[in-house]
Computed example of a mutant assay.
Amino acid sequence: MPGLTHCQLYLQRLGYDSPPPPTLQTLRELQLRHVCTFAFESLSTLMHLPVPIDLPSIEQKVLLDGRGGYCFELNYLFLSLLQALGFDARGLTGWVVMGGPPDARTGRTHRLSLVTLDGVRYISDVGFGGMVPSSPLQLDTEATQATAHEPYRLTFNEGCYTLWAQVGEEWRGLYVFDLQPQADIDYEIGNWYVSTHPASTFVGQLKAALLAPGQRHTLSNANYAVHSLDRPSEKRAIDSADELLALLQTTFGIRLPVQPQLREALERLVKA
């Protein structure tokens, strides 16, 4: 919108008419509103396109072009908003272990943020796909922590923290991280791997996620699921590119890029 700064536009998208104060309640509201407003999505890597992670490129893509993004984009955008609002916040990186042993050491391919409020440290994450925490989590405790969705907890061992989510009766390890300061090049290296390496789970693949009150909507290639807190998950396979396009636009709120290879990539997924 003409005349609005990116920060003002971002706040408008999150439902704010004026900048809120840098408090824990604000952090909770911002994080929940973000994960229910901006989709996690990998359309660029599906189409083998570059994923620039400088702030102007992210602001253009997410705030102006109506897209979503993944952790190196969404968490940088969110961190820039927190810092503009006066929060004491900085970026971190971690190793994703979801789907594998919780003590595995993969590459540093996840970005998140550390926020300190009145001497208490929290992690804030708006870019972990279908299992993104919908509330900030206090760092220096191993107690189970309620969020707006599932319970989470953090454990600490040998200088590293592990984030766990309770799914049903099971605790699942999501990622491991430490508090080592990160430079821009650290994020560039992680993003290069995620967006270009043949072994990356994002290259040539479609992933999307968006939260709603009591629900998580997820898309993995042509497999769509709605996970609810109060009833069993609903899962189905999408069998046409047109249905995938409609789902991305309506359910995930993504303004689709005008790229000729998008339909071709989606048709490949539904035929796989």
Rank of each mutant, 00 (worst) to 15 (best):
M1K: 13
P2Q: 14
H6K: 12
H6S: 15
Y10M: 07
Y10P: 08
L11M: 05
L14G: 07
L14M: 08
G15C: 06
Y16L: 11
Y16R: 01
S18N: 04
P19H: 07
P19N: 09
P20D: 08
P21W: 08
P22Q: 10
L27Y: 08
R28C: 14
H34Y: 08
V35S: 10
V35Y: 11
F38N: 10
F38E: 10
A39C: 11
A39E: 07
E41M: 03
S42D: 03
L43N: 05
P50S: 09
V51G: 01
I53G: 06
I53R: 02
P56W: 07
S57R: 11
I58R: 10
I58F: 06
Q60K: 14
L63I: 12
L64P: 01
G66N: 07
R67M: 07
F72C: 04
F72H: 12
E73N: 10
L79G: 07
S80L: 04
Q83D: 00
Q83L: 06
A84D: 11
A84S: 14
G86H: 06
G86I: 06
D88Y: 02
A89D: 03
L92K: 12
G99W: 07
G99L: 10
P102M: 01
T109W: 05
H110K: 03
R111W: 00
L114E: 09
V115F: 07
T116F: 02
T116V: 14
L117F: 04
D118T: 01
G119D: 00
R121N: 11
R121P: 02
I123Y: 02
I123S: 03
S124H: 00
D125T: 00
G127A: 00
G130F: 02
M131K: 12
S134R: 11
S134K: 06
L139S: 09
E142H: 06
E142I: 00
A143W: 05
Q145F: 01
A146R: 13
P151S: 11
L154G: 02
L154R: 09
T155F: 05
F156K: 12
V167T: 14
R172Q: 14
L174E: 09
Y175P: 10
F177Q: 10
D178Q: 09
D178L: 05
Q180Y: 10
Q182N: 06
Q182T: 03
A183Y: 01
I185F: 11
D186V: 02
Y187G: 11
I189E: 01
Y193E: 06
H197E: 08
P198W: 06
A199D: 15
A199K: 11
T201A: 09
V203F: 08
Q205Y: 02
K207H: 13
L211C: 07
A212S: 13
P213W: 13
G214H: 08
H217K: 07
H217Q: 13
T218Q: 15
S220H: 14
N223F: 14
Y224P: 04
H227S: 13
S228H: 15
L229N: 03
L229T: 03
D230T: 15
K235Q: 15
R236Q: 15
R236F: 08
R236L: 13
A237E: 15
S240C: 09
A241T: 03
A241W: 02
E243M: 12
L244F: 11
A246R: 14
Q249D: 08
T250V: 13
R255P: 01
L256T: 03
P257A: 08
P257R: 00
P260H: 05
Q261L: 04
L262I: 07
R263N: 06
A265L: 05
E267Q: 15
R268T: 12
V270C: 00
